[in-house]
Write a protein that binds this DNA or RNA. Structure first.
Length: 253
DNA sequence: ATGGCTTCATAGTGAAGA
């Protein structure tokens, strides 16, 4: 089983890269974020023609999430049932015996912004939602763009970002609250203390200088974590012509 | 350098991302 997450920053722009990536990497499940597509603009037939299934929640201009899979997706949940949200940031589905929850968490802009209060409420709802999901599903993967760097080893310039958006103690506590439900940050577990990133700013040659952050995560229930042997952050995709600013991340068991 | 780049949007001293 190979499960991946990728914030594509516009599926319209990145579709050829996503299709190439699916061909090359052949994941069982790919969670996508930032589709930036309206619901009826999702290229569903392109995926089904390739033999993939898809559950997706679009929105005009911003956000948008999808789960691409080899096997059928059942019990699809669009948006958190406990949090009415005008923004399309959550989709969950059951794939065989596995509950898959794909999230594009709120950025927040700055700690002083109204968007930070939305981020706080959103994570609070996510925690309650996942607690409920875990009560129903023993095998669960929560993955996507969390917009939180959980520790200082998850960013290249910790001093510059200390206490700021994506890196504040408060946001890190929200992330920890998810782990406290009984989930493990699979990539951090496998990578030990290694400094690794999943996102690099388009500006300032940040990718070439490896000035990044690890904000895309894959969280697993213990039974799945036990079997998981390998992870990869696909920096090759981030090196492509006209890339997303996020790299695909995958784990395997 | 409260910007840098990229996207979607509109034709804005643009908005948002992270």
């Amino acid at each position: 089983m190979k499960i991946a997450t990728w914030n594509v920053n516009s599926l319209k722009v990145r579709l050829p890269q996503v299709l190439d990536w699916l061909e090359q990497e052949s994941p069982d499940i790919l969670a996508l974020q930032e589709l930036k597509l309206e619901q009826d603009k999702f290229p569903i037939e392109t995926f089904t023609d390739m033999g993939f299934q898809a559950a997706y929640l679009g929105q005009k201009t911003y956000n948008g999430v999808a789960i691409i899979s080899k096997k059928p997706l059942e019990n699809v949940q669009c948006n958190m049932p406990n949090f009415p949200d005008p923004q399309s940031r959550f989709i969950a589905a059951t794939h065989d015996n596995l509950r898959v929850v794909c999230v594009y968490c709120v950025n927040g802009e700055s700690l002083e912004s109204d968007k930070f209060q939305y981020k706080k409420q959103w994570f609070n709802a996510l925690c309650a939602c996942i607690e409920n999901e875990l009560a129903q599903h023993k095998n669960l993967v929560l993955l996507g763009d969390f917009n939180i760097a959980p520790a200082d080893c998850d960013l290249a310039e910790a001093e510059k970002h200390a206490g700021k958006i994506l890196c504040s103690d408060e946001e890190r506590q929200w992330f920890q609250s998810l782990l406290d439900l009984g989930l493990t940050d699979a990539v951090r577990f496998l990578a030990k203390e290694e400094k690794i990133y999943t996102w690099w700013d388009y500006r300032m040659n940040a990718f070439r200088r490896n000035l990044g952050m690890r904000i895309d995560h894959i969280l697993l229930t213990p039974n799945l974590m036990q079997k998981t042997t390998k992870y990869q952050i696909d920096k090759n995709a981030r090196s492509a012509e006209r890339p997303s600013d996020h790299a695909p991340v995958w784990i395997e068991w």
